[in-house]
Structures are given as structure tokens and as C-alpha cells.
């Protein structure tokens, strides 16, 4: 069967407040820590939704829009860079599973 790219996979997911442009991020990442002291920058590959990316200069960037609240980064980051909360139902972005 055809294999899906991550973008195709994420395209199947329903998010709350998808149409809102002004959402409150539920995860805060101190990328200063990622880009100075972190030896592995692991969030850029362990995150199942690829919310963490690395640019050409090796700097870590974070976007919350695709987050599916799985919790992986909260455990994987052992540098204290990730502050993890659940999204606010009204003004946050968050996932609603169709199957689960």
C-alpha cells in the first residue's frame, strides 16, 4: 500500500480552533537552551508530529500548530527547555481524534 508522508498523515487530523489565527500555544520551548547547551536536540526527530525542526544552521525551531498532545517532548527533553501544558479548549489549539 502507499506509504504516507508525515504531512499527509497530519492532514488527516482534526484540530480544535483550526480556523483561529490567534491561538495560545500550550507548549513553550526555550530554544536558547536547545541551541546552546543541548547535546542531542532530540525533539527534532522524536516528535511524532515534527513540531520541532532544525534549520540549515542547526538551530532548533518550534511550532505548536501540528501538536497532537502526545507528550513525547515532555519526557524526551532532559535539558529543561520544554514547558508542557494542555491547550485551553477555547483559545488553544488541540487535537480531536476521530478514531483514537
Amino acid at each position: 500500500m502507499k506509504l504516507l508522508s508525515l504531512n499527509e498523515r497530519l492532514g488527516l487530523i482534526s484540530y480544535r480552533n483550526q480556523a483561529k489565527s490567534d491561538i495560545k500555544p500550550h507548549i513553550r520551548v526555550d530554544t536558547e537552551i536547545c541551541n546552546t547547551v543541548c547535546p542531542h536536540k532530540c525533539t527534532t526527530y522524536v516528535c511524532p508530529a515534527n513540531c520541532y525542526t532544525m534549520d540549515e544552521e542547526g538551530k532548533v525551531h518550534f511550532q505548536v500548530e501540528d501538536c497532537i498532545e502526545c507528550g513525547t517532548c515532555m519526557y524526551a527533553c532532559d535539558q529543561g527547555a520544554v514547558t508542557w501544558e494542555f491547550p485551553d479548549p477555547e483559545i488553544g489549539r488541540g487535537v480531536t481524534w476521530n478514531f483514537g
Binding site: 500500500m1 498523515r9 497530519l10
Partner: peptide, 22 residues
Amino acid sequence: KTHPVVRDTIRGGVVVEYSAHV
């Protein structure tokens, strides 16, 4: 999904959701 054994088991379907959780 492309492992020979798994590939033949799941042939032909349509993916309708991708999810993840700790």
C-alpha cells in the same frame, strides 16, 4: 508497514488516521 510480512497483511487499505501518544 513495508516489512514483507506486514506489507502483505495490510495491502489495499486506506489510511484514515495517524495518531501518537506516550
